[in-house]
Simulated assay, not measured.
Amino acid sequence: MTPPSQSYKAGARLLHWSMAILVIAMVPVGFLMIQKGLDRSLQNNLFIFHKNVGVLLLILIVIRIIYRWRNAPPPEPTHLATWQLKVAGATHWLLYTLLFVMPVAGYVRVRAGGFPIEALDAMGVPALVPKSKELAAFAKSVHFYGGWAIAILMAMHIAAALRHGLIKRDGVFSRMWPTKP
């Protein structure tokens, strides 16, 4: 068991796992919804889900960044090699960056393409970017390649977490795993 001083606080764990569940759902939905020949009704529902969960993820990543800024993470495990700490650190910051960039790029792609974002429309939030085919195309590319990047980084992150939790059993995984109340 990991000592409490080396574990993440409850707020960090809640934000991590809430976002993890949503992102794990978003990646396959994002790739599925753009497949040719998909039933139009299903495709529309997937787009609506993807856009609106994207809004929620943008809010959560901003909260998470502020939380991280105000609440230092626990010290890094001392038993890990320097190269592992550097790879883990780079992976985490790339994930943070992509978790911010992806919903912004998605927002720009949708709004510049002239499409609705139902949750924002229901709240009366106006489009913050002009309608533009060129801007929409650029944001679409950023979002598409960012989707691949986040899927790869997420797979690396999950693989490393599982290695620490199931194979090494060295306490790294339990630092973020939800604890019993």
Rank of each mutant, 00 (worst) to 15 (best):
L22R: 12
L14F: 14
P77W: 01
P116M: 06
E118C: 00
K51R: 13
Q35W: 05
H16A: 01
G54R: 05
D121T: 03
G54S: 06
W93H: 09
T2F: 02
W83R: 11
V110I: 10
I61C: 12
G30F: 08
V104F: 10
G114C: 09
Y96F: 12
R64G: 14
A90W: 10
V27C: 07
D39K: 13
F31Y: 07
G11S: 08
V110C: 13
Y8R: 11
V110P: 09
I61N: 11
W83D: 08
H16T: 03
L94N: 13
G54P: 00
H92C: 03
Q35F: 03
P75I: 01
G113P: 14
F100Q: 05
L22C: 04
Q84L: 04
K36G: 05
G106K: 09
L57P: 02
V104G: 14
F100D: 07
Q43I: 00
L46Y: 07
R111H: 14
P73D: 14
L80Y: 04
I117G: 11
A20H: 10
P28Q: 01
L99C: 10
V125S: 15
A12R: 01
E118N: 00
A105W: 00
S41M: 05
P116I: 05
Y8C: 03
E118D: 05
M123Q: 09
I65K: 09
H16D: 05
S18A: 10
S41W: 08
A122R: 08
K9Y: 00
I117Y: 11
A105I: 01
F31R: 11
R64H: 06
G54Q: 02
V53M: 05
L42S: 09
L46P: 08
S18G: 13
M123N: 04
V23W: 12
L80T: 01
T82E: 11
M19G: 10
A81M: 08
N44K: 11
I63F: 15
H50G: 02
G37M: 13
L95K: 01
T97P: 08
Q43A: 12
L42Y: 04
L32A: 12
L42G: 04
T2S: 04
V125D: 15
A72L: 06
Y8G: 03
H16S: 02
G11K: 13
K9H: 07
P75G: 03
S41I: 11
L85H: 04
T2D: 07
P3K: 13
H79I: 00
I63E: 12
Q84A: 10
V53R: 10
P28F: 03
W69G: 07
P77D: 04
T91V: 14
